[in-house]
């Protein structure tokens, strides 16, 4: 039984490490800022900004990959100049993630790419719902097998047949 608990303790540690790694990875690479936070963030750092394209502000050659618009999130707004690969989901009133830098001199956000809105919740939910019941089920079974072995041994019911 001890080896069983040791094994599962090891699995638990690995799971915690994996969770930590995933969390830090997402913080680093996929966390998004609101427009006001992007403004406050330094100048030379590339950031990801989440917001909605305000209606009536989208101008320029959108199909060609050159456009200006205002990005709004709650009550803070920034103007954006997009220059990058032709986007296929840049529309008015669309919520999206912009990748780029804050240009303080022009007071404008210069975006070089558009990312999809990330739904962490669904991914996290699917992994937790998919794996945790399996682990609990397997743990309960292994534990019961161990207990049964012990019961058979201690109750002297077991003889070699």
């Amino acid at each position: 039984m001890t080896s069983l608990y040791l094994r599962w303790g090891g699995m638990l540690i690995v799971a915690i490490v994996l969770t930590g790694l995933t969390y830090s990875h997402y913080q680093q690479h996929l966390a998004t800022l609101s427009p006001s936070q992007a403004k406050a963030q330094g100048l030379n750092q590339e950031v990801r900004v989440l917001g909605m394209v305000r209606g009536g502000t989208l101008e320029g050659n959108v199909e060609g990959g050159d456009a200006t618009f205002a990005l709004v999130e709650k009550d803070s707004t920034i103007s954006v100049r997009y220059h990058g690969p032709p986007p296929d989901n840049l529309r008015e009133l669309k919520t999206l993630v912009l990748i780029g830098k804050w240009n303080a001199s022009d007071n404008i956000f210069e975006a070089r790419d558009i990312g999809l809105v990330t739904n962490y919740g669904f991914v996290v939910g699917a992994y937790l719902i998919g794996l945790i019941p399996l682990a609990i089920f397997l743990f309960a079974m292994s534990r019961r097998v161990g207990l049964l072995y012990e019961e058979i041994k201690t109750s002297k019911l077991y003889q070699e047949e």
Binding site: L18, L30, L116, N119, Y120, F122, V123, A126
Partner: peptide, 23 residues
Amino acid sequence: LYIGLIGSPPDYYQGEVVRIMYV
């Protein structure tokens, strides 16, 4: 899990949600 959650790129259309597929 490591490759699926951290090591692989998101899908062009589905984004990060494609990772659900791995489970």
